[in-house]
Amino acid sequence: MSQPILQAESVIKNFRLGKEEISVLKGVDLSLQSGEMLALLGTSGAGKSTLLHVLGLLDPPSKGRILYEGQEVQNLPAQQRARLRHQKIGFVFQFYHLIPELSALQNVKLGSMMDISLGAWWKRRGELDARARELLQLVGLEHRLRHRPAELSGGERQRVAIARALIANPKLILADEPTGNLDSHTADDVLELLFRINQERGISFLLVTHNEELAARCHRIVRLKDGVVIGEELPAQTGASQES
């Protein structure tokens, strides 16, 4: 078996609320293989989003280890964590988080500008522009390039966010309730797109959701409850769940 692209070992995350310390993650172990599509399933308050933020290096764990391709990363300096996020991870959020002042094309291009100097960008601007257009074409928005987020529907905004997540050629996409804000029809379209990208490009996905149907379409399901992984299952082997 090849080395996992992402591993979490005994991850604990505590938050301080006034004088009280609240434990949100209580020793989570998780691994994600290259090209795998994993659903992180749990009810509201289970700690799904917190785990996604910790795995995405947006929030350091209180204890435990995070490994990307075998390399321990939780203690890296802020600058290196930022670089790692840019180079290896793409994010898709429930509320899209597009920059309202930018057009769809500019929002996607912005992703290619994060780790590049002005001079280097100027030399490669044609290539980067073509890539952003290609990705917007991939998500079916080639006709909406110049539109700003306010002029796009929810589904279109999420497609732009997906294209933006792909621009830096990440190996992993962390998606936090990517269809949570969409109607069922649009949600199906967006999911189809995510599965297609997973299949065609071999990009690993960690999908945070509380939608059982969506989770059932993934390669593997990890269930989280009260900050603890309570089980893993392979959707094809329904009933063969493994209580931890």
């Binding site: 947006l58 802020a78 600058q79 930022a82 670089r83 996020r85 994010f91 988080h97 994060m114 830096a168």
Partner: peptide, 16 residues
Amino acid sequence: TGDIGILTAMGGSPLG
């Protein structure tokens, strides 16, 4: 504030 969050997620450092 929202933009700052997404920029950080995309690989922007606090300094950047």
